[in-house]
């Protein structure tokens, strides 16, 4: 199956994107004929990221389907985290970083002129590698995002809903006033997920969300992710291949391209496919070598 087509990009959002090819594509596919999770939510087209003269990741193209979990795997330095951060323009915050190519969200280029990166980040939330709750109460952590947007009242329901959605409510409902830092690592990470959900994004990016957690906390987050996939589009970077195999619908394999002449290591996308296919019948020998533990 080819996930790179722009076929159902605007199924849910009505607005066809500018440009004739996309409109044609939209007309060719009657709405509703494709399974929901195959609708393209985010499309990454020829994306490269440079830090000064150094190219971290080059010419990446793939589509992220709606309401599915897409895992990005690959060895260290293959640019998967960098690529993840292009999806909500977090790379803008790194001095000297330049992103080229297009990242399309609901048919709109998020790097287009006039697009406010802050607006992008409110729609496309992020959970980080290390749980990073603010040194505030559990309640204030979850309410932080909504308050930024000017919402001052009726936060109780939103906080409860977000904490329930992140499977944390039952553990913290009696101690909402306690510091978020008083929770265990796994709880802190679920608090960060609740905090991200509270802003009402429809995409959540997770940058190795379990790498600082023990196996049991990891399992809980993984279950949570699978549960959330019905409502959210999730893109996860992971070092843990088993995790990708367990939770994701699609897996993208990245690797490091060595340029011996220029002594440069650049991340490139090798392939992306259904997770089952990647793990059992990868088309690129590099993918198979990595999956079977021959390198990386």
């Amino acid at each position: 199956m080819d996930h790179r087509t722009a076929m159902a990009r605007d199924l849910d959002h009505g607005q066809p994107p500018d440009g004739a090819p996309d409109e044609q594509a939209a007309q060719q596919h009657a709405p509703g004929t494709e399974p929901a999770h195959h609708a393209v939510h985010i499309s990454i087209d020829q994306v490269s990221v440079r830090y000064g003269a150094f190219t971290a990741v080059r010419d990446v193209c793939f589509d992220v389907p709606r309401n599915a979990i897409t895992a990005l795997i690959g060895p260290s330095g293959c640019g998967k985290s960098t690529l993840l951060r292009t999806i909500n323009r977090m790379n803008d915050l790194v001095p000297g970083a330049t992103t080229t190519g297009a990242v399309t969200y609901n048919g709109e280029d998020i790097y287009a002129e006039g697009v406010d990166p802050v607006e992008v980040r409110r729609r496309i939330g992020m959970v980080f590698q290390k749980p990073n709750p603010f040194p505030k109460s559990i309640y204030d952590n979850v309410a932080f995002g909504p308050r930024l947007n000017g919402r001052k009242r009726d936060l109780d329901d939103l906080v409860e809903h977000s904490l329930r959605r992140a499977a944390l409510w039952d553990e913290v409902k009696d101690k909402l006033a306690q510091s978020g830092l008083s929770l265990s690592g796994g709880q802190q990470q679920r608090l960060c997920i609740a905090r991200a959900i509270a802003v009402d994004p429809d995409v959540i990016l997770m940058d190795e969300p379990c790498s600082a957690l023990d196996p049991i906390a990891t399992l809980r987050i993984e279950e949570l992710m699978k549960d959330m996939a019905s409502e959210y589009t999730i893109v996860i970077v992971t070092h843990n291949m088993q995790q990708a195999a367990r939770v994701s619908d699609l897996t993208a394999f990245f690797t490091v391209d060595m340029d011996n002449e220029r002594q440069e290591r650049t991340g490139v996308l090798v392939e992306i496919d259904d997770t089952d296919t990647i793990f059992t019948n990868a088309s690129d020998p590099r993918t198979e070598a990595y999956i079977t533990g021959r390198f990386g």
Partner: peptide, 8 residues
């Protein structure tokens, strides 16, 4: 980063 990630 967390704050920026929430759209601050």
């Amino acid at each position: 980063q967390a704050a920026f990630g929430l759209g601050a």
